[in-house]
């Protein structure tokens, strides 16, 4: 069953197409990777899917509902969340507060009860905090639970973003280079986190340059180059595709 369908999607920046006439489908319950050399349009594609950018043309369907042009917070309410290649952490808050913002949709935030700190607000907040601490534990940042985000190391922040996204209880989770800038041990930990997230039934879309990780995790891979689809299929199929090999060797030169 398809959870996300992208139809003839294009996005131009001042005449240059970063994503060009792209169509593909993502099935529920899979780990779907998107690969491609630097500048291929992977992050742009994520920004289009999650409503950060508006497409120049094309349609995006989530659960067979047209979501083109919806804003990110509306999509979050429909069950979509993501992390960023360049950290978008709230550096003015603690780790657990960051994750608690992730649970925003499940807290019925209203002004007056918040101003008065009504018991109902406090109760919900306390329960939310517990759940968020579990999530922090789940991604392996337990020892930073009450630390200021600004004082945490890069690797932990990468995981904190995953915890924040999970707190919104998404059905579709998009991860933009979760292992970039991490060492081998940390990468393996992320690998493990992704597996456990997927095991809970969350559909994962992964952008990652670490080929070992991609090949090991993915049910399905989409390869992009210059915003266009280069190849698509199982890891074996894509790994053998001469165009993909070419694009990667070309980029390496």
């Amino acid at each position: 069953m398809s959870l996300l369908r992208v139809n003839e999607l294009s996005k131009g920046f001042g005449g240059v197409l970063a994503v060009a006439d792209l169509s593909f489908t993502i099935n529920a319950g899979t780990i779907h990777s998107i690969i491609g050399p630097n500048g291929a349009g992977k992050t742009t594609l994520f920004n289009l899917i999650t409503g950060v950018y508006r497409p120049t043309s094309g349609r995006i369907l989530f659960d067979d509902v047209d979501i083109t042009g919806k804003r990110p917070y509306e999509l979050a309410a429909l069950g979509m969340s993501r992390t960023f290649q360049n950290l978008q952490i709230f550096f003015n808050m603690t780790a657990v507060e960051n994750v608690m913002v992730g649970a925003h949709l499940h807290l019925q935030p209203r002004l007056l009860p918040s101003l008065l700190h009504l018991p109902s607000v406090r109760r919900r907040d306390a329960a939310c905090r517990e759940r968020c601490l579990e999530l922090i534990e789940f991604v392996g940042c337990g020892k930073y639970r009450d630390a200021d985000a600004a004082s945490m190391p890069y690797g932990a922040l990468k995981r904190l973003e995953i915890a924040r996204a999970l707190a919104s209880q998404p059905r579709l989770l998009l991860l933009d280079e979760p292992a970039a800038g991490l060492n081998a041990t940390e990468s393996r930990e992320i690998d493990d986190v992704i597996k456990r997230v997927a095991a809970q039934g969350v559909t994962v879309v992964l952008v990652e340059h670490d080929m070992k990780m991609v090949m090991g995790l993915s049910d399905h891979i989409l390869a992009l180059d210059y915003g266009r689809k280069l190849a698509e299929g199982t890891p074996e199929e894509v790994g053998k595709n001469p165009d993909v090999i070419n694009a990667y060797l070309g980029a390496a030169n």
Binding site: G51, Y73, F84, I89, F90, E161
Partner: peptide, 12 residues
């Protein structure tokens, strides 16, 4: 204040 886009993608 921390990150507008970071807040939006979790439903704010």
């Amino acid at each position: 204040h921390g990150s507008e886009v970071g807040a939006e993608v979790v439903g704010v």
